[in-house]
Amino acid sequence: MMSLRYLPLWITAALLCLLFGIGGWQFDGFASLAVVSNLFSDNAFLLIVALGMTLVIISGGIDLSVGAVIALSGVATGLLISQYQWHPLTAFALIVPAAALFGALMGVLIHVYKLQPFIVTLAGMFLARGLATTLSEESIAIDHSFYDAIAEFGFALPGGGWVGASTMIFMVLLVLVIMLMHYSRFGACVYAIGGNSQSAQLMGVPVASTTIAIYALSSVLAALAGIVFTFYTFSGYALAGVGMELDAIAAVVIGGTLLTGGSGFVIGTVLGVLLMGVIQTYIIFDGSLSSWWTKIVIGLLLFGFIVLQKVLSRRTALTTVAGSTAHG
């Protein structure tokens, strides 16, 4: 019984190991700490966004605005540092609460005005992308001693690996989100709302404040991802992160979270992003495969996992029926 719940998680983990093993067997230098650490540092922003997306999807919602929030926070960071000469940390201190407000407003529209998350966050996506292009259409280069320090911060691993600031920020956020989702009352409420928000309400869950907090958190994590993205590119650009929301949603699904809400694991999402990353790395190492195979393979993977989820949820339904007949 227990294994059924964890099955998608195990499958993702197994696929990850398998592909990594095949890569290591086929290509020199694939199975190295350098590749592993690059996997994390190249995907740090996606990993961070996907953490927030996991939260939203477990609650039964969806957030299409995250890619645009990444761009907006990147552009704002760039502007504040390069044009207004703010210290990066002061800029971050403004941007993160602003993102929380942005997400909270979407949460209010969704909960109070009973609008569908899909369409509200779609409007949020236009708004954030629109604000970003309004602030600056051109890419803004960031040149600041703090950024140089960030780039050098980190420690080396044997075999050419490097754990940089982005990876560390992600790790810290991962621990925080796991604590939040699996060890706090807030997390329990998120699962409860995803299961059945009416029952949750009857059981005394503060549905309003939790919903609003969920979207605020998702936007905060997206803004942090935007900041981490500027560490990676040394610039803020209004067209950054286009389509990132889709990658995040795909990673969450591949990580075993039910898109209908109420079930899933934060760590699964991390495995999902890494699996997508390994596919990309494999295709790059292979050289003969073209980049579009990434999309096709991820699409097929998504299909496989969605069908798996269907089969699993049908089987749980069947065991429940069987159980109740045994009793009744």
Binding site: A250, S291, W292, L300, L302, I306, V307, K310
Partner: peptide
Amino acid sequence: YLKIQPIVATLLLMVAGRGVAQLINQG
């Protein structure tokens, strides 16, 4: 027939479809 939520079901082709188009065009 498979009773998959429409958002998810069509997301599949949204992600994979562009890859298929690139495949046809060979990039």
